[in-house]
Write a protein that binds this DNA or RNA. Structure first.
Lengths: 201, 201
DNA sequence: ACCTGAACACCGTTCAAGT
DNA sequence: ACCTGAACACCGTTCAAGT
């Protein structure tokens, strides 16, 4: 696990393979299969280790604040291992060490006045938004190695027909505004308030 | 392109490789590199072809309705090729044949009273939500082949400590409610209304 | 219980050579 | 201009054999 974490932090997910890990351990790829069932299990163990280390924060008593804080924690805990989202996708329940976050979100939603059905629905919407941010970050990281990272988009804007796309062509320099944690957080609040208004008025 | 489309629809993205496509064409993998620069270019050409075929719908004059319809179109155009989202992620501007959708969303947002900055921000939040839904669908599709698809989640719920996670453990049978287009749409409306309230009150 | 070597069935891509 | 064969540098995983 330590070796895997080392590769992950030093060379990125893209370079974490069973073969590469075996090399790091000066062993053979097959030896690993005596400790994990497959690569996914290895990744889930890495998430579990990471989540266990993540400090479990106190939750605010105000239900809306709890919803926001829970959703923010969901994002924060995964921001250092966004690659895991792809593995998590199949059974969209978190690692056991992070289940308190899901519990907090559902609890906050219900205490805001949502029915259990609405709370699950709200969790899903929040999860899509969060997973989208994380998965796009990973995807961006993959293409980011190429030299034409921003150049491609710049060219697309330059080629834009201003009469056909008046709004877009005026936004060329505004577009690449950095997608920061602040942007994620205010989006999260908009999403949560939108959900609250829709379900409990 | 037709051969690639055939593999895609009959065997899924997972089976679309340069080598597999060459076999389909009774050619060699390397011959393909005379027509596209790399695999990403091939995938983007497939999106372009798909987007060009997608009917360009009339937009409502009411700005909020335009925002919703645009965001819905963004989702609909990509539901049949969700695998492209990963490629799109690097330069988050759509294929040229689908740019009218982005233009519509930005236009709707500005006509709702948002500043250009806020409109780009709103587009980003909508894009994260949409991309999340699509990417999770792809990820789910990958794991879906395994026999223990739902079994794993069911076991996770069964193992839940009811005193530690009272909310979650009462939701076991509610959780796997199907994630339909309806769910996506009402989430979208919540997101958009949340964004509107946050930015223009 | 734990590990190894060889193999299976793949990838994307480059490079030099052919017509 | 278009294609080929061979190679490079990888994948995850299975299977039979070893200690």
């Amino acid at each position: 696990m330590a070796a895997a974490g080392r590769i992950l932090s030093e060379e990125g997910v893209r370079n974490l393979s069973m073969r590469r890990l075996a090399k790091e351990l000066e062993s053979t790829p097959m030896a690993l299969y005596h400790h994990v069932r497959d690569k996914d299990e290895l990744l889930l163990l890495l998430l579990e280790a990471h989540a266990a280390q993540f400090p479990r924060t106190e939750m605010p008593s105000e239900p809306r604040d709890q919803l926001i804080k829970g959703a923010q924690a969901l994002h924060d805990i995964l921001t250092e291992c966004p690659w895991i989202v792809e593995v998590l996708a199949s059974d969209d329940l978190m690692a056991v060490s992070a289940l308190w976050i899901v519990e907090s979100i559902i609890d906050g939603a219900i205490r805001c006045g949502m029915t259990p059905e609405q709370a699950v629905y709200a969790y899903r919407v929040i999860w899509y938004y969060t997973a989208g941010e994380l998965l796009l970050r990973v995807a961006r990281g993959k293409h980011y190695s190429q030299p034409d990272a921003g150049a491609h988009r710049e060219k697309a804007f330059a080629d834009l027909d201003a009469t056909q796309f008046p709004r877009l062509s005026s936004l060329a320099e505004l577009w690449p505004t950095l997608t920061s944690r602040n942007m994620h957080r205010s989006g999260l609040i908009a999403v949560i308030d939108g959900l609250l208004r829709q379900t409990v008025g």
